[in-house]
Amino acid sequence: NRLGIIYEIQGMKAVVLTSEGEFLIIRRRKDMKVGQQVSFENEDIYNV
Rank of each mutant, 00 (worst) to 15 (best):
V16H: 00
E20G: 08
V38A: 05
I9T: 04
I25T: 11
Y7H: 06
G4Q: 01
N42F: 12
G4W: 03
I26G: 00
T18Q: 01
R29L: 08
T18D: 03
F23Y: 07
T18K: 01
I26P: 00
D31Q: 14
T18C: 05
R29H: 10
Y7M: 11
E8R: 15
Y7F: 07
D44I: 04
R27L: 14
E43V: 03
D31I: 05
I25Y: 11
D31G: 15
G35F: 06
E22S: 11
V38N: 01
F40D: 01
F23D: 01
N47V: 13
D44S: 02
D31P: 10
R2I: 08
L24F: 12
R28I: 11
E8Y: 14
I5A: 04
E43S: 06
R2A: 04
A14Y: 11
M12Q: 13
I26C: 03
V34L: 13
M32G: 02
K30Y: 11
K30I: 13
E8N: 10
N42V: 12
E43F: 02
I6G: 00
G11R: 09
N47K: 04
L3S: 11
S39L: 08
K33A: 07
E43N: 07
T18S: 08
R28N: 07
I45L: 07
F23A: 04
M12Y: 15
L24G: 01
L24D: 00
F40V: 03
N47S: 09
Q10G: 07
D31A: 12
R29F: 07
Y7Q: 11
E41F: 10
I9L: 07
V38M: 04
R27H: 03
G11A: 10
R28C: 14
E22W: 13
D31E: 13
G4R: 01
V15E: 02
S39D: 08
E43C: 12
D44M: 02
K13A: 04
L17P: 00
V15C: 13
Q36A: 09
L24A: 06
L3T: 11
Q10R: 14
E20N: 10
V16W: 00
R29K: 13
S19C: 13
L24C: 06
E41R: 15
K33R: 12
M12H: 15
K30D: 13
E20W: 05
E43M: 03
L17M: 13
F40S: 02
F40G: 01
E8M: 12
R27C: 12
S19I: 10
I26S: 00
G4F: 03
L17N: 02
V16M: 03
I45D: 05
R2T: 05
T18R: 01
K13H: 13
E41V: 07
K13L: 05
N47R: 04
R2F: 09
E22Q: 14
E20Y: 07
Y7C: 11
D31H: 15
E43I: 03
A14V: 07
V15W: 15
E43H: 05
G4I: 02
V34Q: 06
V34W: 05
I25N: 05
I9D: 00
S19H: 09
Q36N: 10
I25E: 03
K30A: 15
I9M: 12
Q37S: 11
L24S: 03
V15T: 12
I6D: 00
G21R: 04
G11D: 09
V48F: 06
I26M: 04
A14T: 05
E22Y: 14
Y7T: 07
Q36K: 09
